[in-house]
Design a protein around this nucleic acid. Structure first.
Lengths: 229, 229
DNA sequence: TTCATGGTTCGATCCTCGTCGAAGCATTCA
DNA sequence: TGAATGCTTCGACGAGGATCGAACCATGAA
């Protein structure tokens, strides 16, 4: 016993319903204030404050204070990845009583995963890119990279690849989708794609939710840009 | 709030120290009896029984009774992957007081991750295979597959590739290593590799531990078979 | 049948931790 | 300066759950 890192600390942090709701809300990627998170989790401000303190101490969240507000975010992409992975377990092992909420179909179609896209469309994009030989296995930390043809495609799509490459963060990363149980694209490139889709007006985020709506024009463009293999 | 699967259930299961110890022990891949798990977690039989019931109800474990013994195992590779991922968070976000146990260096060098190899040597194997073009990105559920050259290499190494392919389980899968924070090879091929290494006498499992000792001969062979990129 | 071993169930105890009310800082605005 | 808002700390309450002793089933051996 007591081999390896202390897994129980993290588990206990995720294990409380109120904290789980907070983490789930922050999976949307936006920074939220303490009161916003309190209402999101259905608890009072005092309780939220206590929970947030624990989450920050446990290094799952980071806080930045701005004026008299205090904004909270997930501590990084690794945290988001773990949360999605746990969701994958919960969805398929969770006694099959996955009481699907009203927005569940929309969530499965397209949603935000911290800073990139997840769901049906995200998996489609990943599949399309791989079938055209844009992705390759690398020995970087992330294990995934772009081929030459992939780089050409990305540049042509109007993404500043040089800028992304110069950043410290890994360019590509495979993130396991809890609804599809297949990989979608994460990393700085995944984030850049999501930003582009929103700027182009192809996608629109639902207010106070992880759900992403794909506009008709967006759908048309995306289907062309990422044909099914 | 309440979007997506119920993440708190899983978190609470992992969050108790006794249960975390049980899960950690079962990461070794071997089926263990209730009493073995009780001593492993440092609790009495009664409490262990209660915890095991919860873990089975939560679908993290499966039990098979054999005679008057009751053997427990992790419910599948997905569970093991999530546990390793959580360990990754705990190791690097965990307040840096990762009180490294006495066997910690050995764990980092080579250990069992459910049914395949993890740690330094496992990452080396993954890197070597990718640099020689044996792995490619696929659109399967796992997102990873073998190239033609990779298949040739695996067959030449004396592994029954056809048998593995016919199984339902994905052949290749990238599993995130908590000690190295890089990918190593999981899936049925990863399991087959570990089995081969043990049969050949290249590796030996430490008793009641996840630690794997690499024999001198094994080290020699492995370095030849998987040269550093 | 009788005994021993592995596991479970029940009940009681104890303690952690989530929760909220009230009061207290901090910051911004009028 | 005062008033309002955002958030934290303190204290008390209560529930849930982890733990173990004791008694109880099930299986296998003598």
């Amino acid at each position: 016993m007591k081999e390896g890192p202390d897994i129980a600390r993290i588990g206990a942090l995720i294990g409380d319903p109120a904290r789980a709701n907070i983490l789930g809300a922050l999976l949307g990627g936006k920074a939220l204030t303490a009161t916003e998170l309190a209402t999101e989790a259905g608890i009072t401000g005092q309780t939220a404050s206590s929970h947030l303190k624990k989450l920050v101490d446990g290094s799952l969240l980071v806080q930045t204070k701005q004026g008299r507000h205090r904004y909270f975010t997930l501590a990084g992409p690794e945290v988001a990845a773990v949360l999605e992975a746990v969701m994958g377990l919960a969805a398929h092992k969770g006694h099959l009583r996955v009481r699907t909420g009203p927005r569940d179909p929309a969530m499965r179609a397209a949603r935000v995963c911290y800073d990139h896209l997840a769901g049906d469309m995200a998996v489609r994009i990943f599949d399309s890119m791989q079938s055209r030989g844009f992705l390759r296995v690398t020995q970087e930390k992330s294990g995934l990279g772009l081929t030459e043809r992939g780089e050409a495609f990305v540049c042509e799509a109007g993404i500043d690849l040089k800028g992304l490459k110069s950043a410290r963060r890994p360019l590509c990363r495979a993130c396991l989708d809890w609804s599809e149980r297949r990989s979608h694209l994460a990393g700085s490139l995944g984030a850049a794609f999501l930003a582009k889709f929103q700027n182009e007006g192809w996608m629109r985020r639902e207010r106070d939710s992880r759900v992403v709506q794909i506009t008709p024009i967006g759908n048309e463009r995306l289907v062309k840009l990422f044909p099914a293999p």
